[in-house]
């Protein structure tokens, strides 16, 4: 699973499979690969359903979307806008690498062309690409623990990931910071191909939701526009819910 997906996986509320119980001593000496896999697996789940808000701030406008989401496995998800009224009912369905949008105003489904994959999702700082990527970080990147200890008052481990030459990833480098105590993600720093910082994703509000500990809030800030941001906050998450078999169908998208 690729790093940029992390946020969206969170966004889409894939089930968390957190290690239960207190952290044991040997886990602290985990290798970088184990950490990445753990972070990856943290968000790999069977099914989820919940509600979240997405607050978007740009130089020209701010708005908050209320969203309901469903997900299953690693390749099926559905997000529906509940508010604001103007866009109520607008929905995005993802199956594999295909994305469809339903537009209630014109009662039509459109399939997003591949050329639009790097365009913004609903005006946020997430791209459509963020929604569909599905590869494992440890497979696409070479990695090493580049820092351990206190930083910003947090006891953390930093892993530096560099893409393998053959990997089809858009980033030049990704820095991953996790809490040393429980490997909860703290921060993801994305750099572009010329190693310029591109965007930062920070995690906060570690809470128990749906019976699991996870960062309930996630903020993404584009580096070239530091005054802009998208903040995602989970209200409810339900893990392994009973999902109707046709949740991820075009028919249900238009419901």
């Amino acid at each position: 699973m690729k790093l940029e997906r992390l946020g969206l996986i969170l966004l889409l509320g894939l089930a968390l499979t957190l290690p239960a119980g207190p952290v044991r001593a040997e886990e602290i000496k985990l290798s970088a690969r184990d950490i990445l896999d753990k972070v990856d697996d943290l968000y790999r789940g069977q099914a989820s359903h919940g509600r979240m808000s997405m607050a978007i701030t740009t130089a020209h406008w701010t708005r908050t979307l209320d969203l309901e989401f469903w997900s299953q496995g690693k390749d099926k998800s559905l997000v529906r806008i509940l508010a604001p009224t103007k866009e109520k009912g607008t929905a995005t369905l993802r199956v594999g690498s295909d994305l469809w949008n339903y537009l209630p105003k014109v009662k039509r489904v459109i399939k997003l062309p591949s050329s639009m994959m790097s365009a913004s999702w609903m005006g946020s700082h997430f791209t459509n690409n963020d929604l569909v990527k599905e590869s494992r970080m440890a497979e696409d990147y070479t990695f090493e623990v580049s820092f351990q200890g206190l930083r910003r008052g947090e006891d953390l481990i930093e892993v530096t990931c560099l893409p393998k030459p053959e990997a089809a990833v858009v980033w030049g480098k990704v820095l991953v910071e996790v809490r040393r105590s429980d490997y909860q993600p703290l921060l993801l720093n994305y750099f572009d191909e010329v190693m310029k910082p591109a965007r930062t994703m920070t995690f906060a509000e570690y809470r128990t939701l749906g019976g699991r500990l996870l960062p309930a809030q996630m903020t993404i800030v584009p580096t070239d526009k530091p005054e802009e941001k998208t903040v995602v906050e989970y209200q409810t998450i339900e893990f392994e819910p009973e999902l109707a078999p046709d949740v991820f169908s075009l028919r249900n998208l238009q419901r």
Binding site: H60, E87, L103, K105
Partner: peptide, 16 residues
């Protein structure tokens, strides 16, 4: 045809 755009107020402009 359906046209979909990012409107100036951040909303998703769309129409036939």
């Amino acid at each position: 045809v359906v046209v979909v755009v990012q409107a100036a107020d951040g909303s998703l402009g769309n129409d036939l």
